[in-house]
């Protein structure tokens, strides 16, 4: 029983990681209608910037603040310089650009900072408290930050004119332009914001998984799963999806292990936990293609 609680707590903690990445994916999807495969590597690169600033003596929060600003500008710059000429290109060309960006950021980080894993400091105090045997202070901080980010994004899209304009620009560029939305700049802004969210995700993830160029590679996969199961157009859904995937994979391993111990039959174990979690995700998507909380888009043809 105690292990079950521990496994759920640990699942929630990794779920927070997936949720943060899922948020960045939702951000860029809402703003540009694309899924950015380079999202993880961009976040990883931002995390290196943050690490470098901390190495140079900056305290954590100012370093993170600067990193977020830098990532925002980098995101805007990427959209303006690289994706701008491709506005009318097919989806496939854009996917190729995303994969190219992925490779570029990966090699750049490896080239500049080497591949040795780096310890990334946690901004949260390392205190013991009731229940700290189940979940660490950083893990709780990470869960709180992901919820905070969710509320910020939700409020931004729901209650600000800029957020509304961005959604309009992504979903119906032609009409948006007709009512005076600067569609080009909205897309660039979306890239900037997604990169900024990614930077926060990276800084939260790195103390747990260690900073290295491959840090985000596998997390992005879980982030995708989380975002899709919750609904790629819905920030709250994506965060929920992230937590769901995190807890599910731990429970699959836990019950698999329990079955093996009790009955001596091996059905599933650690090796299959991602597979089983993804099967569940696919099942959900088959039944509800827009995700658990996604809005089904109806298009008039």
């Amino acid at each position: 029983m105690e292990q079950l609680i521990q496994q759920i707590a640990s699942g929630l903690a990794s779920g927070a990681i997936y949720a943060l990445v899922a948020l960045a994916l939702v951000m860029i999807f809402t703003a540009t209608d694309h899924l950015n495969f380079a999202q993880g590597e961009m976040a990883m690169f931002s995390t290196y910037i943050c690490w470098q600033l901390i190495q140079w003596g900056f305290p954590f929060w100012p370093a993170l603040g600067f990193t977020i600003l830098f990532s925002f500008l980098l995101g805007v710059a990427i959209e303006r310089v690289i994706l701008r000429p491709l506005h009318n290109a097919s989806v496939l060309s854009i996917v190729v650009v995303f994969i190219g960006l992925l490779a570029i950021f990966h090699s750049l980080a490896g080239g500049i900072w080497s591949h040795t894993i780096k310890n990334f400091p946690s901004p949260f105090p390392n205190v013991t408290f009731a229940g700290s045997g189940y979940i660490g202070a950083h893990q709780i901080g990470m869960i709180l930050v992901s919820l905070l980010m969710l509320f910020a994004l939700f409020a931004f899209f729901r209650f600000t004119p800029l957020g509304l304009a961005m959604r309009a620009a992504a979903q119906n560029p032609v009409s948006a332009r007709l009512v005076g939305v600067k569609v080009d700049w909205m897309l660039a802004l979306g890239w900037g914001l997604a990169a900024a969210v990614g930077a926060v995700a990276g800084a939260m993830v790195a103390p747990v998984v260690y900073l290295e160029p491959n840090m985000m590679a596998s997390i992005l996969l879980y982030g995708f799963a989380g975002a899709l199961v919750g609904g790629i157009s819905n920030p709250a859904g994506a965060v929920f999806g992230g937590f769901l995937v995190g807890v599910l994979e731990n429970l699959v391993a836990y019950f698999g292990n329990l079955t093996e111990k009790t009955f001596g039959i091996y059905i599933v174990g650690n090796g299959e936990k991602l597979t089983v979690a993804l099967i569940i995700v696919i099942t959900i998507l088959t039944l509800k293609p827009a995700g658990l909380f996604g809005r089904t888009t109806v298009r008039r043809v």
Binding site: E2, Q3, Q6, Q7, S10, G11, A13, S14, I17, V205, V208, V209, A217, S218, I219, L221, Y222, E249, N250, A253, Y254, N257, G269, N270, G271, K273, L274
Partner: peptide
């Protein structure tokens, strides 16, 4: 015996199994 895949982000869950 707890295994992990190179694609796993962390081995936290496996470590909990091992401790228990």
């Amino acid at each position: 015996l707890s295994t992990y895949e190179v694609t796993d982000p962390t081995v936290d869950s496996q470590m909990i199994q091992l401790k228990n």
